[in-house]
Write a protein that binds this DNA or RNA. Structure first.
Lengths: 347, 347
DNA sequence: TTGATTTATTGGAACGTTCCATTTATAGCG
DNA sequence: CGCTATAAATGGAACGTTCCAATAAATCAA
């Protein structure tokens, strides 16, 4: 049953009594071969348990059908949702995306990119790891392989980016908190080596300026972008002389962490301290209390990124427009009014 | 800068003034070449922006360094944790795992497996999609590519399986509930087309038998293995004439759903209805109330699966022992005693 | 010195495909 | 019937590696 050596198109050719070229044509679904011949060949393929060798084919074709998705943290459901969005459109296009995880480690990322390139990918969709060096993608660019960044960007690179409107999202969220009467605001989590951090923090600060929250009433606490980081941020904030009454969090994981820390202190998010997240992962709606968050249409961004990639491959270009996705604030329970300073905007 | 056609070892050879064989040797880190020659070659490699063509190499070597991980639901954090465990050991072994998602769709799974095979993977770690047909892996087996199943198994296949002790986990959980005084128990979620379902349900039923819960006091509600499914299960259960007071859930997602449905009814998990989950995902500990769950050491199972795979590849076999991982019950807040039937075991 | 041994390097034949240029078979037409 | 036009099938030269067998250069033993 299991043939000793693996079968090649020559074995099929012999089995079916045709030439290897004919087999190749059948494999490619060419209309040039007589239907009955095709049937005969396909039967032979089945009989010998043939598996197509794409490596050999690519040697001639130089056009593979695999796309690499390099993701910095698979355990963050946010990125899993992104991946799912991309897969939907790739599947429809007959392209197989291979996902690789870098675990937020630039060295690992280097290895993963190298391996993907050696495999001959047609394109790369990357959410770069924190601390990626500016030149990390130069090799790939000069090799002419299209890249698009998803969600994150690098300080000054000309690689197209698909990302939500972080600035606007943060403005919306901060305005919401201020309208609810909060006057002492914090920004929790994230660190300044991420471009996204500056965008979100920038929106937060802009809203504060516009609506008259002085710098002395703003608290910025950097921290890990995880539950743990969020817990730490909250502790730090409450330990200050005049603690804030509300916080915009870098992302939902940080927000969940902050809410957990509140609960540990017997405080309730929403009633005692307002928390707003960013990304609106599926879990936000199901949390208790439900988390107010900036929705970024994650799967939609994934689809968009995939489309852009497909177009780049098709038109053999390495350039494309950036795409900034619309955002919206989803108000839930976690962002109640300041109890000492009630001012309308009660939704 | 970007050379027109992509560079090959011949270009490097010319650049460095050596033969292609020498370049090949350098690429493989052979000790046969003179150090200064190696340096010269490596410089040339850098200069021409060479990228190794693994497809061409595999044509001769027939031993690739990529392993495919086929996962049925990436958005379930449980599988992401599994993937992370595997990656740890593969990275150390210099192997690059490519992850592909089947979204619980056997057709998609077929495509993904085909593509991975064509890519010439050295092995496959698979968590099969629900509804996978028995013969789905025959082709791969006869091709001699090692497979290991992770977490899930197929009804009667001789492919090695790495999975937790589902039966024992369910026994532990059910015993716990019964000792807490519950007398009307339910099993929530999952469906009988999954082998895992029978294992977990079997453990539940066995514990009921042993500890004297009659069949009339047991309720089994099948359902989707998601939050949504869990919510539906709870509603169904509470609508019965004599509703249960506790439920063991097929997995944590179902448990989270059940808890959410309780909250919607202004009931509290733990106090009004006991809920136990399965898998103990990271979130379980941080939920409110914290979820009692069967811990399966997900990342550990991932590591084990990767090790088994590595060994199979090395020893060129397609056989290996099953590995059933130890489980333990982590008691938290969601599984309080039956309020009408208090009987010790208060931890 | 000569031959044997070791150390570095090299040419060439694979590997399994694709695709161009041909060849062969089939049909159409006057 | 011969001729052309069309359809179907084919051989062979790539593609970029690896690896064996062979060569060339350097070292050693006697």
């Amino acid at each position: 049953m299991a043939s000793r050596a693996k079968a090649t198109i020559l074995d099929i050719a012999r089995e079916a009594g045709v030439s290897k070229s004919t087999v190749s044509l059948v494999l490619q679904g060419s209309g040039l071969i007589r239907p009955e011949t095709a049937v005969k060949v396909r039967k032979a393929i089945e009989d010998v348990g043939y598996v197509y060798n794409r490596g050999a084919a690519n040697l001639r074709k130089a056009h593979s059908n695999v796309i690499g998705m390099v993701i910095n943290d698979l355990t963050n459901p946010f990125f899993a949702e992104l991946a799912v969005g991309m897969e939907r459109v790739f599947q429809a296009a007959g392209v197989v995306p291979f996902i690789a995880n870098t675990a937020e480690n630039p060295v690992r990322q280097e290895e993963v990119l190298k391996s993907l390139m050696e495999q001959g990918v047609a394109g790369l969709i990357v959410s770069p790891a924190r601390g990626t060096t500016p030149g990390a993608f130069r090799r790939i660019e000069t090799a002419g392989v299209p890249i698009v960044f998803a969600m994150r960007r690098l300080p000054d690179s000309r690689i197209p980016v698909i990302a939500p409107d972080n600035h606007r999202g943060a403005v919306l969220a901060a305005e919401h908190l201020i309208r609810r009467g909060h006057r002492r605001l914090a920004f929790f989590g994230g660190s300044s080596d991420l471009v996204v951090y500056h965008e979100r923090l920038g929106g937060f600060l802009e809203a504060c300026e516009t609506l008259g929250i002085p710098a002395s009433d703003r608290l910025i606490v950097e921290g890990e972008t995880s539950r743990k980081g969020g817990m730490a941020c909250l502790e730090t904030a409450l330990a200050t002389a005049e603690p804030p009454t509300a916080a915009l969090c870098f992302n939902d994981a940080v927000a969940f962490g902050a809410m957990l820390a509140l609960r540990r202190r017997k405080l309730e998010a929403g009633a005692d301290f307002a928390v707003v997240g960013f990304d609106d992962v599926a879990e936000a709606e199901h949390y208790s209390p439900a988390l107010t968050s900036v929705a970024v249409d994650t799967a939609g961004l994934g689809e968009r990124a995939a489309h852009v990639m497909l177009k780049m491959i098709q038109s053999r270009t390495t350039r494309a427009e950036d795409h900034i996705g619309a955002v919206s604030l989803v108000v839930r329970e976690s962002s109640g009014p300041d109890r000492n300073n009630q001012v309308g905007d009660a939704a």
